[in-house]
């Protein structure tokens, strides 16, 4: 089976260019190809006509790298739940459909070109505390640190985050709560993450708020997440953040230092 699709794609020559939609016809494309392959087909046409191809991010094309996020018909990664753009196949579209393709829109994700955005702000959140400071050396014996199976499973659910940015793109507030909460939770649920649990959540929330909006519990992120990460992690982030106000000793020590000097 083949399809004819009309593509309205956001074209923007650079970070400062105003940008505009351009329309392309994709005729007789196989319904078995992925959305990225559709862009490849359109780009081959453009190159053949000596026109500039559409710039889009991609890497693994198997749904695990988080590079290929774009808005497809007003939804991050398109209409299919729990799917990245590269895993979205054209059989989910109808012959004659018009498909609007747009980059993520967020102040923290400036557009570099066409559909490509800069997601460095996510790296900055992780740099603020999304790691364990102690040198871990070689892998330990598996039973050395007991981890309850249920905790390991939940930590893995959080660690499934590929940092694609769909949560921010989907959020009407441009908030990064789902991303940050997943990164905080996957360490916070494991024994290795405990020593820095409270200072981590303080630091990562602070960094997050330098770049992104605030969560008002629309749940749009959860619906858009290709890894179907639950907003339960956001509640967990909020709970940890509240507790950290009383348990982050680094912060408490600072308060006592000042008090004792007076």
């Amino acid at each position: 089976m083949t399809l004819n699709l009309t593509l309205k794609v956001w074209r923007q020559d650079g970070p400062r260019d105003a940008g505009r939609f351009e329309t392309y016809e994709a005729n007789a494309v196989s319904e078995d190809i992925s959305f990225l392959e559709l862009l490849d087909v359109v780009n081959e046409d453009l190159v053949a006509q000596n026109r500039e191809p559409i710039a889009f991010d991609h890497d693994c094309r198997e749904g695990i790298c988080g590079m290929c996020g774009v808005m497809i018909n007003g939804q991050p990664h398109g209409p299919l739940r729990g799917t990245t753009t590269c895993q979205l196949h054209l059989r989910h579209f109808k012959d004659g459909d018009t498909v609007v393709v747009e980059p993520w829109r967020a102040a923290a994700f400036p557009i570099i070109r066409d559909l490509v955005v800069n997601r460095t702000a996510f790296d900055r959140i992780v740099m603020a505390g999304g790691y364990v400071t102690a040198p871990t050396g070689a892998a330990q014996d598996a039973n050395n640190i007991p981890v309850p199976k249920a905790n390991a499973d939940l930590a893995m659910d959080a660690a499934a985050c590929i940092g694609c940015g769909a949560c921010v793109a989907a959020c009407p507030n441009g908030a990064a709560q789902l991303f940050t909460s997943a990164k905080v939770a996957h360490l916070g649920l494991l024994p290795q993450g405990q020593p820095e649990r409270w200072s981590r959540v303080n630091a990562m929330v602070q960094r997050m708020e330098e770049h992104f909006g605030s969560c008002t519990n629309h749940r749009e992120c959860e619906a858009a997440c290709p890894k179907e990460i639950s907003i339960d992690f956001i509640a967990r982030l909020n709970r940890d953040y509240l507790k950290a106000q009383f348990k982050d000793r680094r912060q408490l020590l600072r308060a006592t230092d000042v008090a004792s000097e007076e």
Partner: peptide, 14 residues
């Protein structure tokens, strides 16, 4: 956090 909004129609699901 989002000075420029989506230029195409947005579809909310949740």
């Amino acid at each position: 956090a989002r000075p420029t909004g989506y230029q195409g129609p947005r579809r909310f699901v949740a």
